[in-house]
């Protein structure tokens, strides 16, 4: 019994030495050919999938297609992070904004946001008005900023369960597009992403 104990100790020590010897090396990951392992946490693939799903649905719904042919102006409202991870919700919204801009249907304003303007320069550039040092012909005139027609808001939810010996983590990417004229949500979308893995430890 005793000897077994010491022996297994030595085996464990040798094993841990061997493990530390073959450490992994750093390498680039190509998103188009990433066959790497999946984590229980949210990674770039999840954001990409959710954004792709939302954009396809949004464009094909026709909700952002202005009958007059002009582009709609969209403001990004609050996307609540209701997960257990410190993520930046811009990871989701930026992808959507880029795709919408490319589609030619929607342009996002950086002058209006929940916590003030996303780009402070919108205001600062206007403070040059009546400043003698500046050529006033290039300074933005009053009444040129465009007010938004649409507002994008949403929530990323995480719910965990134990399923037999495993842990199931459910993420829901919920998005709403509000027509600011009427206050009605003219488009809504939910992309669930569900992962199942070990229950040894917490999912963050």
């Amino acid at each position: 019994m005793m000897l077994n104990g010491t022996r297994s100790l030595m085996v464990a020590a040798v094993a841990s030495l061997m493990l530390s010897a073959c450490a992994t090396h750093t390498r680039y990951v190509d998103p188009a050919a990433d066959d790497g392992p999946v984590a229980m946490t949210l990674d770039y693939r999840d954001f990409e999938r959710a954004a792709d799903n939302a954009v396809q649905d949004l464009l094909s719904s026709g909700a952002v297609d202005n009958p007059s042919g002009e582009r709609y102006i969209m403001a990004v409202s609050r996307i609540t992070n209701d997960t257990m991870q410190r993520i930046d919700t811009d990871q989701l919204t930026k992808k959507i904004r880029v795709a919408l801009l490319r589609s030619g249907k929607v342009v996002t304003t950086t002058a209006v946001g929940v916590d003030g303007a996303e780009d402070q320069m919108n205001q600062q550039a206007r403070e040059l008005r009546n400043n003698d040092e500046f050529d006033q012909s290039g300074v933005q005139q009053k009444g040129t900023l465009k007010a938004p027609d649409l507002s994008l808001s949403g929530k990323i939810i995480q719910r965990n369960h134990k399923v037999e010996d495993e842990q199931q983590v459910e993420y829901y990417f919920q998005l709403s597009l509000t027509d600011l004229k009427s206050g009605l949500a003219i488009w809504e979308n939910e992309t669930p992403i569900i992962k199942r893995g070990p229950n040894d430890t917490v999912a963050w």
Binding site: T83, N160, W204
Partner: peptide
């Protein structure tokens, strides 16, 4: 506020895990 919510959610999830 964003990160406070994350931590409260974690505390809640740990409570759920405790029973298991």
């Amino acid at each position: 506020d964003d990160y406070a919510r994350v931590e409260f959610n974690r505390a809640d999830d740990r409570t759920r895990r405790a029973v298991d």
